[in-house]
Amino acid sequence: MLHFSDLFQYTDVFLSGLLTTVELTLLTTILGIALGTCCAAIRQYGHTVSQRLVAVYVELIRNTPFIVQLFFIFFGLPAIGLKLTPWQASMIALTINLGAYSTEIIRAGLSSIPKGQIEAAKVLGMNFRQTLTRVIFTPAFEKIYPALTSQCIIVMLGSAVISQISVEDLTYAANLVQSRNFRAFESYLVTALLYLVLAIALRFIFNQIGKRLFAYREVR
C-alpha cells in the first residue's frame, strides 16, 4: 500500500533539497558553458598544442563516468593537498563535466560558420570583437542551442549522484526521508517526479531565453 501522506511533514526537507539542486544547476550551467565556449574557441582557432590538450580533456571526461570524476575530485585531490568541501567538489565536477560536453557541441556550431562570412566581416570593416560576437558566436550558438540546453538538463539529472558525497540535494533529501519513515517507494517516486518537473521547467525556461536571445531572426 502506498502512503503519500507520510511525506507531507517533510515538505521543507524536499524543498531545501530542490533549492540546492536548482542552485547548483544554475551555477554549473553558466560556468560550464563559459568553460565550454573557451575550450571550443581554442579547439577551433587555437594553437596545435593547446588544441591537443583540449581534445584530451574532452575525451577523458566524456569517456569516464561522472561518479568516478566526482570521487576523484572529492577523495583523490585532498591526497595531493587540495581540500574541498562536498559542495565545492560537486560544483567543480559538474562544471568540468558540462564543460567537456559543451566544448564538443559549441565546436560543432563554430565549424558550421563558413570561412567566407568571417572574411566578409573583415572586408566590411568590422573589428575583431564585432566579428566574434555578431558573425561567429551568435549564429553558432543559435544552431546548437537545443543540443546545448538538453545537455544542461542531462547534467542536472546527473547531479543526483552528488548526494553520495553528502551534498544535501534533492536525492539526499529523498534518502533522508526514506531513512526516517521507511517509505522508500513513495519518497523516491515523489523525488523522481520533482526531477521530472524540474527538467520540464528548465526546458521551458531555456526555450523562452532562446526566443529572446535569437529574436533578431524574427521579422520586425
Binding site: L157, S159, V161, T171, A192, Y195
Partner: peptide, 9 residues
C-alpha cells in the same frame, strides 16, 4: 526526464 539514480533506487 528523471535521473538514472532515482530509477535505480
Amino acid at each position: 526526464g528523471t535521473p538514472l539514480l532515482m530509477q535505480m533506487f
